[in-house]
Amino acid sequence: MSATGYNFAYLDPQTKRMIRRALLKAVAIPGYQVPFGSREMPLPYGWGTGGIQVTASVLGRDDVLKVIDQGSDDTVNAVNIRRFFARTADVATTDRTAEATVIQTRHRIPEAPLAEGQIMVYQVPEPEPMRRLEPREAVTRTLHALADYGFMHVKLYEDIARYGHIATTYDYPVMVNGRYLMSPSPIPKFDNPKLHRSPALQLFGAGREKRVYAVPPYTRVESLDFEDHPFSVQRWDEPCALCGADDSFLDEVVLDDAGGRMFVCSDSEYCASRQHAGHTGPAHRAQRGSLAAARAGEVGIEQGKPVPASNDTASARLGRGPASS
């Protein structure tokens, strides 16, 4: 299946060594943005080229790769990147968080807890957490060098003064190991607490901006806040309509043009495995048949998302998988 004429995992060995050197430096200085010679990749900038280069550099033949976008293994970009590595590296892929050794993600951290030995690879569009307040790179680098982050709190102050609370909901800036201010990538702030003292190694790649950075296992990661306006995460009034989870990030699914909607887990694998284990949510229990019909009819899909496709089926469709490799 590996496309001929290209190196294992696409990048040539020298480039991978260069990126691994940059990653080692990033691990040594948690949260610090290390410049690296980002290459043009066969996918466009902004579509995960940083994450892909990091994954390509750390991936070995025995690794099991999971790729998600918006929490789902089946979004177009996740499928595309998984196909890329299936073609160029021929590694095993999986939907299951617990089975994966390398997880490349865009915009989410899986709900299932991560373990030691796992590597999270985040796709980062803008590595500089101060960029919206200060566009000049020469200035932001100086501010990092001096740990001069006062004006980040000015922004939070303004939010509270204007809205009564901090109004940043995603890409919520964090302090890493009490030293470097870091963008966690555009994950919802709901996921920020998962960064803190995670047993997994967390690597961040920004291809277009040519930076990598890292949070080593068990590192302190704190979201910026005020003592009297502590950091808090989103909560929903209802559990996942399909699996009943009340601890996961929920996507809003519009059911019809009359305002009908339901909330379901953004982490499709988490939701599916909970349903597999027998958990059900309110919508699922009450109107299983009519709902599935409504969704298929209204949104024009061939198969509803909530159907708990087994891992084997997914692997077979991808033409490969842990069993067939």
């Binding site: 001069d148 006062g150 004006f151 709190h153 000015v154 922004k155 102050y157 303004e158 509270i160 003064a161 204007r162 806040d225 005020f226 003592e227 009297d228 306006h229």
Partner: peptide, 24 residues
């Protein structure tokens, strides 16, 4: 581009003040 309060409070925040009510 920020309020009068944020302007006056900035130096406090830059030197470590982290209590919104006290800054205000």
């Amino acid at each position: 581009n920020v309020s009068a309060g944020a302007n006056v409070g900035e130096r406090l925040m830059a030197t470590g003040a982290r209590h919104y009510g006290e800054i205000r």
